[in-house]
């Protein structure tokens, strides 16, 4: 057998083994999260090494308890509200701002378009202390709306940068027709830019949604009142209060994970583009 053949065969075997390895290490935690959430506490304690879920013993108690006794129905509503408002504001402001940076001439244009990326450098833990101090001082800290503003500040620069890169690929000429017909700049954005940028807007919206939905640190530090908790905040609270009942924590984890994975499943193309074009802080 020639070296070419030998190596090609070795590579084929290694590739199969490698793919199996990756599938297991990636999928197993998610599998285990779901399987455990459907087991009873007794099952988890008595047979901790049982990898399978007995269909006849599927148990929805954990979901019931988490939703109605630990307040998660409220947290789901809060998380949805926070994420959707953040997305709406972020996409709107980034579209308008991105357009201005791409098409309008003004002093400081170059500075604006590059400095927005410096936010990549700023660790959230460095921002959390001063913001905590200021908002505690003003008695505004324990508020979902302040949290939304913080998320907006975290996502806007990246969203603006992503849209700017996209707008630059659109030919200017198509806007002239609109401007000559008497459209204002806002009219041009609304009638010409937005319809042409649907894929880019989808990427930005998904990216922003994911950041807001997944965020932990600020929600953890800012929110004190359980009625205001987001899902991430709620899961941490739950994990701290139940010791052995891991099925509850797993059910809560499933609830916070499934929406984002489902979104991803449907819009993979846009999300991947969002992740690679703007990169992602994380």
């Amino acid at each position: 057998m020639s070296r070419e053949h030998l190596e090609t065969n070795i590579i084929r075997i290694l590739r199969i083994l490698g793919i199996i390895f990756f599938i297991i290490i990636v999928a197993f935690p998610f599998y285990w999260m779901i399987v455990s959430s459907f087991k009873s506490l007794e099952e988890l304690l008595m047979r901790p090494a049982n990898l399978w879920l007995d269909i006849r013993k599927i148990n929805f108690n954990a979901y019931y308890e988490v939703l109605f006794e630990h307040g998660f129905s409220r947290y789901i509503a809060n998380s949805t509200y926070v994420s959707i408002i953040t997305v709406a504001l972020s996409v709107t402001l980034a579209t308008v701002g991105g357009y201005a940076v791409t098409r309008l001439r003004f002093r400081g244009q170059a500075f604006m378009s590059y400095s927005i990326l410096i936010i990549y450098m700023f660790p959230a833990i460095v921002l959390v202390i001063p913001l905590y101090v200021v908002f505690s001082h003003m008695a505004l800290r324990d508020s979902i709306h302040v949290l939304i503003l913080v998320y907006l500040a975290q996502t806007l620069p990246v969203a603006l940068y992503m849209l700017r890169s996209y707008f630059q690929t659109l030919p200017v000429e198509i806007e002239y027709a609109g401007l000559i017909d008497g459209c204002s700049r806002m009219g041009v954005i609304w009638r010409i830019i937005i319809p042409l940028s649907a894929p880019a807007l989808a990427s930005v919206a998904l990216y922003t949604f994911m950041i807001a939905w997944n965020e932990f640190l600020f929600a953890f530090m800012f929110l004190d009142t359980p009625e205001k908790f987001t899902l991430s905040r709620g899961v941490v609270q739950l994990a701290g209060s139940v010791h052995l009942s891991k099925q509850l924590v797993m059910a809560a984890s499933v609830m916070v994970t499934v929406p984002i994975l489902v979104l991803f499943l449907f819009f993979e193309r846009y999300l991947v583009r969002g992740l690679t074009s703007g990169a992602m802080k994380g």
């Binding site: 999260m33 932990f216 993979e268 994380g282």
Partner: peptide, 21 residues
Amino acid sequence: GLFIAPYIAPVVAVTFTWSFI
């Protein structure tokens, strides 16, 4: 698609799951 899942899943969910495992 599967290989991207760890990155987009919420940090609280994956840390608690790994702690449990």
